[in-house]
Design a protein around this nucleic acid. Structure first.
Lengths: 279, 279
DNA sequence: CGCGACGTTGACCTACCTCAATTGGCGTGG
DNA sequence: CCACGCCAATTGAGGTAGGTCAACGTCGCG
């Protein structure tokens, strides 16, 4: 498993074992749709997803609910634990879910003992923020079919980076209603979009599994650009993360994206060719 | 000015002066719509808004643009500087803008010398994240009039927390087209929503100024709940922030919100008749 | 074998978009 | 001081993406 090997590279075996032992010791199961963290509560424990998916969400008083993002196996739900503020959103199990629950003291000890681990978790937070930004772009600007396709691309690519895609397939537990809550559409309309994608040979979802025969084709309908997931940056983590904590700074290597000057019309606004100059 | 006094409480005068001197020394002007930070670039300097507004945004290849948030005077644009990754979004001037530009070395020295400052900036980042979550909720679930009203509520409340509201009025530089890019609507439709809000005596926008005669009424239209802005948490900052860096942990005091259980299968519950009209 | 959750489909409706023209404010140059 | 020109705001008419409602199919499971 490439990701596992990668982790070995990034974390000394001692840290790695300490971490995994800790996870194993605190495993905990949740039933589908039950909350791990409730908005407004002061979080007591840090949650790490071991198996299954979790979903972050917020809701309005009248019940409208928006999913902010999915937490996949191996990812941390709430590092924000340490801010000690009340949670600004809830976290629930998408389906049957196993997490490790580690309380504050232990997390603290763990992070002190495992500097590499701390860096990896920090990088995870930064990438999560980048995903939030893309999520906003999606909700605000993409049309229905792009939104759905984009979500599938994101999931598939994240799973791929973790080495959990085989034969163009990966796990995909959410129901269509949950997809709908994630992309801000109606379950009915999500169903139609999935149907359309299926007709076009873009995706197949069955038995909680996602099948993507031609990723590039799907990415094209989604206007998906994987850069925001910072895939492959983990390899550069040691250098970069050390900059976070130590001093000097070798930057990652990556071609800058185009600053495409737009088209025409009202909404798709031609924003003036802005130069990044002062004065 | 209450906010200034607050800062004095939070930061020893020495730190405070060091910080402000630093800001003053590096002032820099930008023309409306010019970029301070371009997506994909490695940020060289940290930007702090001194006067005017900045906007974070992302765009699609075809020109569709989504504003991720506004940066108000006194706020920091990109603390993420230290991650040393390429910027995942661009930042531009809403209108004529003055910022302080501080390069990495100096920021580093500053933060080492001013631990209180560092804590305040960290808290700012956390609150920014909370705002992002609310922004997602808005784009995904609120209808047009709620979205626009919610944006105005957020701005107004943030300005109020900073002590910049007088006589129910505060600065409001963005054009309707920029509002549209922020809330994911068309400029035309934003115009109509503003018109409706004006007819209902909810807001008045003129001469780059926002007037809110009855905040609660506006908040009701928007389903706005100020909690996510963490107003008043700055007062608790010393205690809380120290927990971030030191050890033990007095939590903030704040009533938990309701955790409305999920409803039926379908999406839009009959949201309360948002009567923003004649009244 | 019957219930309950999920997926699917059709008919219809409306919130929001598109296109297009007009108005008003304001800075600039004559 | 006025006329021009530009940009933002405004308004109307008509179109469509996506929502709503409601029924039916299907699968898993006790």
């Amino acid at each position: 498993m490439p990701f596992t090997e990668l982790l070995n590279t990034l974390m000394p075996p001692a840290e790695r074992m300490r971490w995994e032992a800790c996870l194993a010791r605190h495993a905990q199961d949740y039933a589908r749709n039950s909350d791990l963290v409730r908005e407004g509560a002061v979080p007591e424990k840090m949650h790490i997803v071991l198996a299954g998916w979790a979903q972050r969400y917020k809701q309005l008083e009248d019940g409208r609910r928006q999913i902010l993002g999915f937490v996949l196996p191996g990812e941390v739900c709430n590092l924000d634990l340490f801010t000690l503020m009340r949670a600004d959103h809830s976290i629930a199990a998408v389906r049957t879910l196993t997490v490790a629950e580690i309380d504050r003291d232990e997390v603290e000890r763990l992070l002190l003992d495992c500097p590499h681990l701390a860096r990896i978790l920090c990088l995870g937070e930064i990438i999560a923020k980048s995903r939030q930004h893309e999520w906003i772009l999606s909700l605000g600007q993409r049309v229905a079919i792009e939104r759905v396709a984009h979500l599938l691309c994101e999931i598939f690519e994240r799973e791929r980076l973790r080495g959990r895609v085989r034969g163009q397939r990966c796990d995909f537990p959410p129901t269509q209603a949950q997809i709908a809550e994630a992309v801000g559409l109606t379950p009915v309309h999500v169903n139609r979009m999935l149907h359309e994608l299926r007709r076009g040979q873009r995706v197949e979802i069955a038995n909680r599994r996602l099948f993507v025969p031609d990723f590039d084709a799907l990415a094209q309908v989604a206007t998906f650009d994987a850069r925001y997931l910072h895939g492959g940056e983990a390899e550069q983590l040691p250098a970069r993360a050390s900059a976070l904590f130590d001093k000097d700074a070798p930057a990652g290597v990556r071609p800058p994206p185009l600053g495409a000057p737009p088209s025409s019309s009202y909404r798709r606004r031609p924003h003036p060719p802005s130069q990044a100059q002062a004065r």
